[in-house]
Nucleic acid binder design. Structure first.
Length: 403
DNA sequence: CGAGATTCATGTGAAGTATACCTTTAGGCTTAA
DNA sequence: AAGCCTAAAGGTATACTTCACATGAATCTCGTA
């Protein structure tokens, strides 16, 4: 597009009457005033946490539910309300929300504690200090702050799976060491059987209270979508049946509301980009593809080099062999790729772990199988649609500087 | 023919190593009295 | 003598390697019917 044409394009863009009224209403971090079908959980959560308003320590709380069942949203809603009330009445309260899954932020014991201490304004180096020291720094500043702290740990199951439950044990115990301040834990887990794997002591003190978030059904999803769509779109810009189709798609995947909202938002964006007046049914299918594509590309792009090389090898091998592929083959190809890219190849042991992590990320499906006489291995299958594979490959080629 | 032993290719846990970063400490140099 | 800077020493977290052992069904072996 020429320079002149561009200014014309922008003018055109501004003149065009948008189909969105307030697109934020469909974004993941948006908190509506009311959260349909979670009234019960929200009320209970409020009851459990309310004692802070009398400067008493609330019970520790544990939330279960699959992704997109409103755990995070409800928690944020309740905590913002409490915060507001607390500041109005000058109650010394602090709420910290941490997502334990974020790489390089809170995915190890050290990093989580460092993150918390930083919340209290401490300068903590990335590495080098003993973890105990970080605990002390955190306790100290918490105690000095003279506040009740509600610590919300999202996706806590991921963290415990990786680093064990010592962290939780320490956190549940620190109240006895604090003189002035108090700490309540709110754990959020996607895994329903998570607490089974905990040390009994941790389990009993962490789950003083428990709340379960069941999946939404299609009708509830429709309610949610309708509520948000009314805010987000201008009148009459969504074709008949679009909402229910989004709901149906998401209900198919264990009632994931986030997914439903994403679908609707992306469908809207597609409509807008194509200069169309109405969001039609077809746009949802297109949106579904695009969401999946974006997710995969995002993951591929954000991984460390070794992970990229591994993923690349998997794509490479599986495009040559139409059948299922095995870890050994991937390793052989991976070694070649490394040489091409000027990377020092990692050991098979490490690659095995990397493959597991890629599995966790959902870009591949790996299953351990025994081929009897012919040994034992992982059977790997790509979870990326064909056309996206090529894009992923290209991205990695760029990043890895392969020819 | 079938039960049990064998086998293969790799999964997996534990312990060790390299690297990058941290604090503490001791020595050397500078400065000011 | 006091103060400041620097480098070495001693410590840690993390990512990775090394070593050794675990796995589990297809295949083999061998006793038995």
């Amino acid at each position: 597009m020429s320079q002149k044409g561009l200014s014309g394009f922008f003018e055109e863009y501004l003149k065009k009457d948008a189909i969105f009224k307030d697109k934020k209403a469909l974004q993941a971090n948006y908190t509506p005033e009311t959260i349909p079908h979670r009234e019960k959980q929200i009320k209970e959560m409020a009851q459990i946490l309310a004692p802070v308003l009398k400067t008493e320590k609330p019970s520790n709380l544990f939330l279960y539910g699959k992704t997109g069942t409103g755990k995070t949203l409800s928690t944020k809603y309740v905590s913002s309300q409490i915060e507001e009330m607390a500041s109005k009445n000058e109650i010394p309260l602090k709420i910290i929300y941490v997502n334990c899954k974020l790489k390089k932020v809170a995915d190890t014991e050290y990093r989580l504690m460092a993150h918390l201490a930083r919340e209290f304004g401490k300068e903590i180096p990335v590495t080098g200090l003993p973890t105990d020291e970080i605990y002390n720094l955190f306790f100290e500043s918490l105690d000095i702050s003279n506040k009740i702290l509600i610590l919300i740990l999202d996706e806590i199951d991921e963290l415990v799976k990786k680093t064990g439950d010592r962290l939780l044990y320490n956190l549940t115990r620190i109240n006895s060491e604090l003189k002035i301040s108090q700490l309540s834990l709110v754990g959020i887990s996607n895994n329903l059987t998570f607490s089974e794997s905990l040390d009994p002591r941790v389990k009993s003190s962490l789950s003083e209270e428990e709340l379960v978030f069941p999946p939404y059904n299609a009708i509830q999803l429709q309610d949610i979508l309708n509520q948000r769509a009314k805010k987000a779109f201008k009148q009459g810009r969504v074709a008949e049946g679009v909402i229910s189709k989004c709901a149906a798609y998401a209900a198919r995947e264990h009632g994931d509301a986030r997914r439903a909202l994403d679908l609707l938002r992306v469908a809207g964006e597609i409509t807008e980009r194509n200069n169309l007046q109405k969001v039609e049914l077809d746009h949802i299918d297109e949106a579904e593809k695009r969401i999946e594509r974006d997710r995969v590309l995002e993951i591929a792009l954000s991984q460390p080099k070794q992970f990229q090389a591994t993923l690349y090898s998997i794509i490479e091998v599986s495009s040559q062999k139409k059948t299922l592929i095995f870890a050994g083959e991937v390793y052989d190809t991976y070694k070649k790729i490394c040489i091409q890219a000027g990377l020092r190849p990692l050991t098979q042991r490490r690659l095995s772990d990397i493959i597991s992590e890629l599995d966790m990320l959902g870009v591949i499906n790996a299953k351990i199988i025994s081929k009897g006489r012919y040994g034992r291995t992982r059977e790997i299958k790509l979870a990326i649609p064909q056309h996206t594979q090529k894009e992923v490959k290209k991205i990695i080629e760029g990043g890895l500087d392969l020819s």
